[in-house]
Design a protein around this nucleic acid. Sequence first.
DNA 1: CGTTGTAATATGTATGCACATATTCGGGCT
DNA 2: AGCCCGAATATGTGCATACATATTACAACG
Lengths: 230, 230
Amino acid sequence: MTAMTWQAVQAEALRRIRTREWPPGARIPDEEDLARELGCARTTVNRALRDLADAGLLDRRRRAGTHVATTPVRKATFEIPIIRQDVEARGLVHGYTLLTRAMAPPDAATCRALALPGDVPLLRVVALHLAGGAPFCLEDRWINPVAAPGVEQADLSVTSANEWLVRHTAFSGGGIEFGAVAADAVQAAHLACAPGAALFEIVRTTWAGADPITAVRLTYAPGYRMKTAL
Amino acid sequence: MTAMTWQAVQAEALRRIRTREWPPGARIPDEEDLARELGCARTTVNRALRDLADAGLLDRRRRAGTHVATTPVRKATFEIPIIRQDVEARGLVHGYTLLTRAMAPPDAATCRALALPGDVPLLRVVALHLAGGAPFCLEDRWINPVAAPGVEQADLSVTSANEWLVRHTAFSGGGIEFGAVAADAVQAAHLACAPGAALFEIVRTTWAGADPITAVRLTYAPGYRMKTAL
DNA sequence: CGTTGTAATATGTATGCACATATTCGGGCT
DNA sequence: AGCCCGAATATGTGCATACATATTACAACG
């Protein structure tokens, strides 16, 4: 009778939530009762419900019990694709062209994003990713050579800057932002679209403790959409 | 010496990954060894490493052991805000205006998204969300009255359509998409921007089993960005 | 020489138990 | 009435153990 896995318990709980047998806001039976009812150990129930609470479907508080969340969808997890994989997953050939590579003082937005004074020169790398020969994504990256020693000597025309950094720097955290921007002249030229076209943009920053490593702005060709299932 | 919680084990593992004591791709000690080394039970190590694997930092395979992922950041979880909460979290007053509410056959994109034939009329609800009096987000929603019985009688000028659906329908899954679009005339008028301006857009669909419930397109005023930490 | 079966191995999961911790409830005191 | 404190309660966590399962390595076999 060990047929009750935590997945089965979770599936049953999910069913009761979705069929509104346990309506939004309601308090559900406590772990011990559920364990008895479903014929398994309390730890198994705990595992099942804990995951549902992590997903935002349940609210659990000690002594107060477990309640069905009133706002069912609160979190979504996105796969942040490596561009090459993203392209290849579409059945297209990935291409990569290094456009710019120079030391320069960062622009104001990058300074803010990386919490750096404007007079420290950073390595700027601009590259274009192609999918099946067509422009796919423009990558505009600033790298802090202090946090990434050796990057000034690296050959980034073969290894992409992303791969080099993954292999050579210690990463401890960062941030990611999504937004929409109008194509400027440079973006329009490289992405083969009209200036002013609406482009999907991802900005990522990564840090090693308190030291900024890199900030990258990915601007996708028109029509790009990022999807996930709920 | 029972001070070793699973959080502590996880923190230690994270430290070793980030300091490259365990470099990308390397195989790490198995659970039993780690448990012995850190002075805790194998189940505690399992709990700690399982969560890291869920987050994409580790690859675990039976018999093959646990390896540090070579692509450190693969997933990001976003809080999908209820618009009212999103606005209020910015310290602004939320406003809501119902603009349109009518039965109509859906457009081609909505038909595709909901896998419906084009001749079934749906309830279309268009509303504008305000933040501190300024346009914030345009909500363009199609509701399948078959999957949401009673919605045709609901007063959606007080209760938002989202709240009504959360309370009255059984949800089983869905999808979400992010993208960028150029403002059309209607969007420009309501969001107080120029036609053609780059707008951030979220499209969400929800289902009850095989039946589509609703598709909603949220178009945000220029400048909106969605952020999360890694 | 490839193929297939089998044993070894690392992770995955269930269980019973004990204790920790947060939160609520209610009683008793002022 | 209001406040404080202890008891009750539900979840959170750790441990030892046992067994399940996927995967690899390797040896036997045709």
